[in-house]
Design a protein around this nucleic acid. Structure first.
Lengths: 236, 236
DNA sequence: TAAAGCAATAATATCTGATATTTCTTAAAT
DNA sequence: ATTTAAGAAATATCAGATATTATTGCTTTA
């Protein structure tokens, strides 16, 4: 679970677009799972996917195997592939792991980050804040863009942690967490804005303890919020 | 959400024997990478693998994609698959991540483990210790068995951490770390025995702080040892 | 009526072979 | 020596064939 070319690589000098069918199919199916277009538990029949994604069976199986290793798809022996189901417990696990890994990465990053790192963090926070203002004013037309900004902000913060392995694991975890957020479709705009600002300020001030504490609260508040929405949608 | 027991299989809890070619190939290639039979950086040509593992190209590609997601194989766009290279930095990252995840899991486990957990830990440590005595007396004929016991001990310790996701990540990390150990082929018998005992005692005494500290030292000592051997083999 | 059995259907797992495209190798040319 | 061009090798992808297994629906039986 290390290579995550699409996001980790800077968009500046993309030496070669990975234009293979396999890669693009992987991206599309993963996207559809994260954003709920393929609901949790859905049976992924090869024939159906073949027409939906215009790819051959072999390519699809490669893709699904990859997604299975990532944990977005469950491969059941002789029974085929399913979108990984969701559960309260799983969400809690994911969130706690994200706290563990992201806080650790943030600590390292804040202590090692150079001028470049600072610059990227400032830029990412600025872009995120612009989006947040638009969201707060009621313009929810670009939720995906907003989420990308959120991702880029969180990534920028931990980018200087000096561990590709850590960044890779975190990326997958973020995506899994994101799926739950997309699932319940509820936002906690104003609060999250403040939390982002707190993390941002503490990180730039190189106040490791405050930054990690704020990040932990940020993630756990999100968890609580998502759990509530999840329970509500389960018991209407 | 709860995985129901396989319909056809008897209730005996043998690890379900997935008889598919895909799974067995996956296991075998992964094994060969971890135990160095496929050296780091090796080009994995489909034709060669086809004869070596007696599997079709499609199955092999599925397998390699899965291993690529796990991080044991590097898939290069249009250029095929390679055994993931090793490096000093990567080893350090892996070890540090293992410390982070395994210590966290151990803490949870020690605080939540029930009688079953204790029983399994005692059993696993006993078996490990038997193997260790054989190794110390010069019988190195079963290094793989010994390593399996080491794995089972470490796993038993964290088994009660209540997070499948965490256990999954840890398992992969352990294997990656193991590859480096197998690579340098050096053992630090007596020292590791003592360290295992320390962890074991503290865990059973529910002394979380001591247990995690001992585990951290155990892993970091191993890292240092492996790094030295790695440097030595690089600069002869 | 419910459980058990069984045939028909659907879907998966796997291999082979074909094709287009890309990368690698080698040898000629500047 | 570096570049270039042709040929060989390897990958990425698809389609089709087959064997095996899972699912479904109907029939029988208790």
């Amino acid at each position: 679970m290390i290579a995550k070319p699409c996001r980790n690589y800077p968009t500046t000098h993309m030496t070669k677009q990975p234009s293979t069918v396999g890669f693009s199919t992987y991206e599309r199916i993963k996207h559809d799972i994260i954003f709920g277009e393929l609901a949790p538990g859905t049976k992924l029949k090869l024939e159906a996917l073949r027409t939906r994604y215009a790819a051959g069976v072999s390519t699809l199986r490669e893709t699904l195997n990859r997604l299975a290793s990532d944990g977005f798809v469950a491969a059941e022996e002789q029974r085929g592939f399913f979108v990984t189901p969701v559960s309260r417990e799983d969400l809690i696990e994911i969130a706690n792991l994200r706290v563990l890994l992201e806080c650790h990465a943030l600590r390292e990053s804040v202590e090692n980050g150079d001028a470049d790192w600072e610059g990227n963090v400032v830029a990412a926070h600025h872009k995120l804040h612009l989006m947040e203002k638009r969201m707060l004013s009621g313009d929810e037309s670009e939720k995906e863009t907003w989420k990308r900004c959120d991702w880029e902000f969180h990534l920028a913060l931990i980018q200087a942690c000096n561990s590709r392995n850590l960044l890779g694991l975190h990326s997958t975890l973020y995506d899994k967490y994101l799926r739950y957020q997309m699932l319940v479709l509820t936002y906690r705009g104003a609060v999250a804005v403040v939390e982002h600002k707190e993390i941002f300020d503490a990180a730039l001030a190189r106040d490791t303890a405050t930054a990690t504490r704020a990040l932990e609260r940020h993630i756990l508040n999100g968890l609580e919020h998502t759990l509530e929405a999840l329970d509500k949608s389960a018991n209407p």
